[in-house]
Amino acid sequence: MTLAEWGFGMDRFQLKILVQDYLKRTDRPNPFKDGIPGKDWITGFEKRWRENLRRRVAQNLPKNRAEACSKEVLQDFYNKLNNSIQRLQLQRKPQNIFNCDETGLQTDCGVQKMLCRKASANPHKVVGSTTKSRYTVLVCCSFTGEYLPPYINDKGLRCQ
């Protein structure tokens, strides 16, 4: 569960390898055929832990994006935002403050279920990089709720 919260959740195969390695390192008897847990053991494990664990589809999160969300990075962002609002005298002009958010939609993403805490609604799996082609959508809204038209980037083409 902790590994999943850190973005390094395990799938069924990785869990089997972990159990096999644990038995080797602790010199415990290995009751499994070929020394590795089978499908029945995994199913039983998931049933025993069903109150705490669930298998969910993980969303790939590139490592550089995962590291960009540290407490220090966020604090630096809010300090710079506050300084900009003060410098530009926008405290009483919410209609002039806009926030943009970009999301990438992959055209061919691999699906992998991982074990994670039962209450996890949207687990992420940290990956080295994402190399699949993607569409990018940029949405922009003012502090007063006024939206600008979305900006869509499709493989280098600009669509509005």
Rank of each mutant, 00 (worst) to 15 (best):
N96D: 12
E51T: 07
V126N: 01
K93R: 07
P123T: 02
Q89T: 08
P150N: 04
S133M: 11
K125H: 06
Q59A: 15
E46N: 12
G110D: 13
N82I: 06
F98P: 02
C116S: 05
D108I: 14
V111K: 14
N122Q: 11
Q59E: 15
P150E: 06
M114T: 11
N79Y: 05
R117A: 11
I36L: 09
E102A: 09
R134V: 08
R92G: 12
K125I: 05
P94Y: 08
K63N: 11
R92T: 15
C109R: 15
W49C: 12
V73C: 14
P37I: 03
N99A: 04
P62E: 04
D101I: 03
H124D: 02
F98H: 03
T144E: 07
V126L: 01
L105A: 13
Q91L: 08
V127N: 04
Q106S: 14
F98V: 01
E72Q: 12
M114G: 09
V127T: 04
N96P: 04
I97D: 01
V126G: 00
T136L: 07
W41R: 02
K125Q: 10
V126Q: 03
L105Y: 13
K71V: 12
R56L: 08
Y151W: 13
N79A: 10
L148I: 02
R48V: 03
N79I: 07
Q59C: 15
I85A: 01
V137H: 04
E67P: 00
V139Y: 04
V126Y: 01
V57S: 14
V73K: 12
C141E: 09
N122H: 13
A58C: 08
C140G: 07
K71S: 14
E46Q: 10
T131K: 13
E67K: 06
R65M: 13
C140S: 09
P62Y: 01
Q112S: 13
A66Y: 00
T43L: 14
S70L: 06
N96I: 07
V126S: 01
E46T: 09
Q95G: 10
V111G: 10
E51F: 06
V126A: 02
Q59N: 15
E67N: 08
R87W: 07
N79G: 09
L61Q: 04
L88G: 09
R48A: 06
K118H: 08
A66V: 02
D76M: 13
N64Y: 14
Q59F: 14
R48S: 07
R92N: 15
P94G: 10
Q89M: 10
E146D: 09
S133V: 12
R48L: 05
D76C: 13
F45L: 10
P94S: 08
R54F: 02
L115W: 06
L61R: 03
P94I: 05
E51L: 11
L81I: 04
C69W: 12
K47D: 08
G35F: 00
Y147D: 10
G110Q: 15
